[in-house]
Design a protein around this nucleic acid. Structure first.
Lengths: 248, 248
DNA sequence: CTGCGTGATGTTGTACACAACAATAAAATC
DNA sequence: GATTTTATTGTTGTGTACAACATCACGCAG
């Protein structure tokens, strides 16, 4: 079903997840599952069995259900009695509203309680930019998604407004899967991937430059523009592909 | 502890909550508990026993825990192992960031997918305005909070952007308790209540007028201004009161 | 009288058995 | 042979017993 090459074994599961209190454990399981969903390790429509997950993480169904309940409240899965817990399917049109909101929030990060980036943070941006440059050399969809995710978290840390951070994160995780899913269906998959990585690299360079001089408002403006354009490109290519293959 | 006069029996519990599927039942319990928290039926710091709630709603602890988990994720309660589920305490300073965000989102409701109000919706606004006028005549803190809540939901229905609605609601329920809590501690409780109701009535009249001519951008601007000013008034009176009684 | 340890009590977290429900396949009936 | 009915299997939702943990009271030594 998925054109994304995934490996048989999923990363970071029952290894060193035991330590810490019960809250930390649940938080870690939550983070792992959310990441898997967003990187399409779990494809939209896939059924997640609670007991399978319980076995993998070496707990009972109870804490797993706690995690799945949160993922359901956040719109990433949907549990159906007697059937299973299904990873929600998504399409670009349904996510348009989320994108519109993300565009606005991106600008707010530079306005509401911006934190002046210190040397360490700037270094983190530069490191990420370097990773992105190796990505341009050897394009890979999954690596692209991962760098994109790290980049988001780094940007999100530029505001001290906690609720804004939380909400931006929520919306990010609702939308980020759509790129991998849509792109993987395209005929011109490799070409689109290369083009998108190039554009992303340019955006990142621009933003890192703005971060270096400490102008977070500019960062907000750049991000706003890029999120908006990224959505439009995605929608266009998705619709073009849909009409080519015979609509719906 | 609370200066708000509450009655012995809490409304809307085990009566007609049985009907519907399991999801609807959980949703209803959630709504009831959330409302109780926001109207200070459960005061900040109060301990909610899972088994007590389970008895009241005539279910086991399991679905109650499902609801409490969501309330915890939304920041209204916090479960502590071996202690209890405690209604989160709040103070005006901690909520400043939430208010800043709400101010921005209020404006977005008029911008993102605004829905032209039909006759029925306008009528709902006018009905609410009438309720507010009776409130001016006979001030009552709890009724004020309830009308405020209804007003919020009505305003929130003016955008078709679902994620924006959900997030606005989330932030609203995080902040709305602070007014009742702060006001109830004030020396000049009655005077502040009367003044606040008068201001609220004026805001409502302005907004209803803007709704009637269908200008949702203006609605957004008015709300933005009022949320902002309301917060400032609250913070000032809270701090003035704190210094008067000896800081802390 | 104070400080510390220890047991009793109460509450949430976990695990597990079972009920409710959905889907599929098999079988019976027309 | 097609269709309806029924049985079987698989999954989530619920209830409940028990474990883990925190708190408080009580006793006891200093």
């Amino acid at each position: 079903m998925t054109a994304i090459p995934t490996l048989g074994r999923l990363p970071a599961a029952d290894g060193a997840i035991q330590s810490g209190g019960s809250r930390e454990r649940i938080e870690r399981i939550y983070a792992v599952l959310r990441k898997r969903i967003c990187l399409l390790d779990y494809a939209p429509g896939e059924r997640l069995r609670e007991e399978t997950l319980a076995d993998e993480f070496d707990v009972s169904r109870t804490p797993i259900r706690r995690v799945l309940a949160r993922l359901e409240d956040e719109g990433l899965v949907r549990s159906v009695h007697g059937v299973g817990t299904i990873v929600t399917d998504i399409d670009i049109d349904a996510l348009e509203q989320v994108y519109q909101l993300r565009v606005e929030l991106a600008e707010l990060i530079g306005k509401l309680s911006p934190v002046r980036p210190d040397a360490q943070k700037i270094a983190a941006f530069q490191t990420l930019l370097a990773r992105c440059e190796t990505l341009v050399a050897t394009p890979d969809a999954r690596k692209f998604a991962e760098i994109n995710m790290d980049f988001f978290h780094l940007l999100n840390s530029l505001t001290a407004n906690e609720p804004l951070r939380a909400i931006s994160e929520l919306l990010y995780y609702q939308t980020t899967r759509i790129w991998l899913k849509t792109a993987s269906r395209l005929e011109s998959y490799q070409a689109v991937l290369n083009a998108e990585i190039t554009i992303f690299h340019r955006e990142m360079a621009d933003i890192v430059a703005a971060v270096e001089i400490g102008d977070l408002e500019v960062v907000g403006h750049i991000r706003r523009a890029h999120i908006s354009m990224s959505f439009l490109r995605l929608r266009d290519s998705a619709h073009a592909d849909a009409t080519r293959t015979g609509d719906d």
